[in-house]
Simulated scan of single mutants.
Amino acid sequence: MARWIIWTTACLISVSSLLVIPLQSSAGESLDQMARSSLTQTAKETIAGSSAAKPLPDLRSETTLTASINNWRAVLAREAGFESWQSAVWSSFPLGPGTHGWGVILTDHGREVGYMIVHATENGSFRLTEYGTGDHPLFSLNTLYRSLVQQELIPATIPYSAFVQNETIQLNRLYMNALTAVWKVKIHNQAYYFDAKSGELLPLKEDPSPKLTNLPITESILKGPATTVQHPSFDPYDRLPWVQGTPLPLTQPKQLQDALGQSDKLTYVTELYDGQVTLPLAILGYQQWESGEAYLTLDHEGYRYVQLKDALTQGHVYR
Rank of each mutant, 00 (worst) to 15 (best):
G134E: 15
G261V: 03
P57Q: 11
I13C: 01
L212T: 07
H100L: 00
G199K: 12
Q230A: 11
L279N: 04
H136F: 12
Q262D: 13
L148Y: 08
D274H: 05
L95C: 08
A53M: 04
D32L: 02
W90V: 02
Q288A: 15
K44Y: 11
F126C: 05
E83A: 13
G98M: 06
T168N: 13
Y131V: 01
T267D: 01
L256V: 07
C11P: 00
P225K: 11
A77S: 15
D310K: 14
T168I: 07
L95P: 05
S61M: 03
H300G: 00
T278M: 13
D238E: 09
L144I: 09
W4V: 15
A191Q: 08
R36Y: 04
A120M: 08
I6K: 11
P241Q: 08
V229Y: 12
E130P: 08
L65A: 05
P232Q: 08
H100I: 00
Q86P: 03
D299V: 01
P22H: 07
D310W: 10
Q244R: 15
L312C: 06
L240N: 09
S68P: 00
M116Q: 14
I47N: 06
P208F: 02
D135F: 03
E152K: 14
R239C: 08
T9Q: 14
Q257C: 07
L202F: 04
A226I: 11
P159I: 08
A156I: 07
G224D: 11
S17M: 02
Q255L: 06
L272S: 06
S233Q: 06
P216Y: 00
T8K: 10
S91T: 14
N70E: 15
D135Y: 05
P236Y: 12
R304N: 09
P203N: 05
S50V: 04
V118Y: 04
S61I: 01
T9L: 12
Y286T: 14
L95Q: 04
F194M: 06
A43I: 07
N71A: 12
L312Q: 08
S26R: 00
H231T: 03
D310V: 12
S147L: 05
Q86K: 14
D274Y: 05
T40H: 10
A120V: 02
V149S: 04
N189F: 11
L284Y: 01
A162T: 10
L179Y: 02
V229N: 01
H300P: 00
S125A: 13
W4N: 03
S209G: 01
V75M: 06
S51H: 03
